[in-house]
C-alpha cells in the first residue's frame, strides 16, 4: 500500500496536517491531523509498503516490540484507508 497523491502534509503551529490538493479540494470538507508517529508512517508510505514492513520499521525506530508495532499499525492503516488517504 501507498499514500494517496491527493494529500500533502504541512506542519502548521507544530501540528502535522494532511491537506487535500488538486481535484480533491472540492470533494473534501476536512483536514487530518497526524501525531508524530502517524507522520513517521505517512512519510514511509511514499513508497509501496506492506503492513508488516511498516510494523518492522516502526519497531526499529522506536524500540518497541514487533507485536505491539503490528497491533498499532494495522488500525492506523485502517483509519487512513477509511478516510481515503491511501491509494486504492
Amino acid at each position: 500500500m501507498r499514500r494517496s497523491p491527493d494529500f500533502v502534509v504541512r506542519t502548521v503551529g507544530g501540528q502535522d496536517l494532511l491537506v487535500p490538493i488538486g481535484a480533491m479540494v472540492g470533494k473534501t470538507n476536512s483536514i487530518v491531523v497526524l501525531n508524530p508517529t502517524g507522520r513517521y508512517i505517512w512519510d514511509l508510505l511514499a513508497e509501496d509498503r506492506s503492513p508488516g514492513e511498516l510494523a518492522a520499521m516502526l519497531a526499529a525506530r522506536f524500540g518497541i516490540d514487533r507485536e505491539r508495532a503490528d497491533a498499532d499499525v494495522r488500525p492506523f492503516l485502517d483509519d487512513l484507508g477509511r478516510m481515503g488517504l491511501l491509494e486504492p
Partner: peptide, 14 residues
C-alpha cells in the same frame, strides 16, 4: 529515542 505513542490520524471537519 523519541518517546513512543501509537500512530493516530484525527479528522478535523470544516
Amino acid at each position: 529515542r523519541q518517546p513512543y505513542e501509537p500512530p493516530r490520524a484525527c479528522r478535523v471537519e470544516v
